[in-house]
Structures are given as structure tokens and as C-alpha cells.
């Protein structure tokens, strides 16, 4: 079973995201880059499947040379191969990403493609569904449990208040969610091995974007904050304000 895992380099979750003056872009400087956390569940699941069934895991990521550090971090978990799709900056139109990925991944003999349920920067959650459509494959997103049996699979996907049991046909694109598994640590042997794996760099003509982010802003500041310092004895007043001023209860 040969598996591709599409990963994205994103700012660390602890990053305070800064909007550039004028709101035109997000400030890149000083960002600590990581693998988008959901992608680690994708990598782990792919590794488990190939460990059980044989085959190789290929890490795929789009971006400038900077993302090779993140690719190495993915390889250090135990993947065998890697592809970087070269581009000046990571597209913020998921349609572009999906089309480029489809072009690169098509015809390489993959049985499964994993992604995270969404990348934690754009939070678009579009690539799995779009990519599957372009490849004419099945797609299950937000997966928390997965079993593959020959040309069929069963998955649980998270939905409001519970989960859906889903049957699908192979090949498939799977969007991994937290709780699908427990991603392994990168052990020292893995880190040293990852160093030696060549990263295939692929050039693709990206299609034109279909959407444009015209401005970024911080969420609007709300009204005056009130701090009540007397604990339980202030509660009656807080409840009154919630009812009469905020009108939320």
C-alpha cells in the first residue's frame, strides 16, 4: 500500500498572528513554523497502515524552500519519500492547492492520500474534498477511526454531537482528525535517517486563484470589560447585568 500524506507548514499554535499595517497580509517574521497539527495524525495513520500492510509513505508539501524543514520533521516520524512542490508562497486558495496536488499525485500509483482535516492557518477544510473529486476518488473528512479492507474501507467521522459511520471505496482521500491515533515521537534514529532522504522538488504551473483575500483584520474589540474581584458575592450583580445589559440570558 503506497500512501501520500499532504502536509502544510503553518505557524505554531502559540503564535500571536500579526496583521501587517494596512491589513494586506499576515506578518511572516518571527513565526515558528510547524507541521499543521492535524497532519501529524495523517502521517501516523499512514505509517501504521504501511507498517501493517507493506508499502511506502511519501510526504508531499507545497511551498518555498523554507518548508523542507517541515518535510524533514515529517520524514523523521518514519516516512520514506518526500516531494516538495516548489512555489514562492503557499497558495491561500485551496482550489489552487487541490489542483496542483492532483496534478503531482496523479499516476504515481498511490492507493491512499491523507491530509489533515484542515490546516490550522487558513482553516479552509477544502483540499480533501476537492482533491478527491479531481482524482475521481472517494473522500472522507474529519476521520477519527479508519479501517481498510482490500478495496473497501470503513471510517468514523466526527459530526455535531457524535460521529457518522461511513463506508467508502478505495482509492480514497482521508482527512485526519485529532483522536484518529496518537502520533509517535520522532526518535533519534528517525531524525538522522530523515536527514539523508532526498526531497524531490517538483515545478508545477499553478492555475489562477479563484478567490482573493482583500484584507486581514483583528476580531472586533468588544465593549468595556468588567472585572469583579469579590468572587461569589459579586455574582448576583453579574447575573443581573447578563440579563439586563447583555441580554444573553
Amino acid at each position: 500500500m503506497n500512501i501520500a500524506v499532504c502536509i502544510k507548514q503553518t505557524p505554531d499554535t502559540t503564535t500571536r498572528i500579526q496583521v501587517a499595517d494596512g491589513g494586506g497580509e499576515i506578518v511572516d517574521d518571527g513565526i515558528q513554523w510547524i507541521i499543521s497539527p492535524y497532519d501529524e495524525f495523517a502521517i501516523e495513520e499512514a505509517l501504521k497502515l504501511t507498517e501493517a500492510n507493506g508499502g511506502e509513505v511519501t510526504i508531499v508539501s507545497m511551498g518555498p524552500a523554507r518548508v523542507e524543514k517541515t518535510i524533514r520533521e515529517a520524514l523523521a516520524m518514519g516516512a520514506q519519500k518526500a516531494i516538495r512542490i516548489d512555489c514562492e508562497s503557499i497558495p491561500n486558495d485551496p482550489g489552487v492547492t487541490a489542483k496542483v496536488l492532483a496534478e503531482v499525485l496523479r499516476g504515481r500509483g498511490f492507493d491512499l492520500i491523507f491530509t489533515g482535516r484542515q490546516a490550522i492557518d487558513g482553516d479552509q477544510a477544502q483540499v480533501p474534498g476537492r482533491l478527491a473529486h479531481l482524482l475521481d476518488w472517494a473522500c472522507v473528512s474529519v476521520v477519527i477511526d479508519l479501517a481498510i479492507d482490500g478495496d473497501k474501507g470503513t471510517a468514523l467521522r466526527e459530526v455535531e454531537g457524535g460521529s457518522e459511520r461511513v463506508h467508502f471505496t478505495m482509492p480514497a482521500v482521508i482527512g485526519a482528525n485529532r483522536h484518529l491515533n496518537e502520533p509517535r515521537y520522532r526518535n533519534m534514529r528517525g531524525i538522522m535517517k530523515a536527514k539523508r532522504i532526498p526531497i524531490e522538488v517538483v515545478q508545477v504551473d499553478a492555475p489562477a486563484p479563484q478567490l482573493e483575500i482583500t484584507s486581514y483584520s483583528y476580531p472586533p474589540q468588544k465593549g468595556e470589560r468588567k472585572l469583579f474581584e469579590n468572587g461569589a458575592s459579586d455574582v448576583a450583580e453579574v447575573v443581573r447585568l447578563l440579563r439586563e445589559e447583555a441580554q444573553v440570558i
Binding site: 515521537y185 526518535n187 533519534m188 534514529r189 531524525i191 538522522m192 535517517k193
Partner: peptide
């Protein structure tokens, strides 16, 4: 052991990670 801490500088063919001494110290 799974992390490879007990074999940091040991060559990979003997089950270690093959780190140089400075990397071993950093680990």
C-alpha cells in the same frame, strides 16, 4: 529507549542514532 536516548552516538548498524559527540551533548 524507543526515543533512542540510550544509544545517541552509537552507529545505526548497532541500533543507535549515530550522532556526533556535540549532537549527543545537545540531546
Amino acid at each position: 529507549g524507543e526515543m533512542g536516548l540510550q544509544g545517541l552516538p552509537v552507529p545505526e548498524e548497532y541500533g543507535g542514532a549515530g550522532l556526533d559527540a556535540l549532537s549527543t551533548a545537545i540531546a
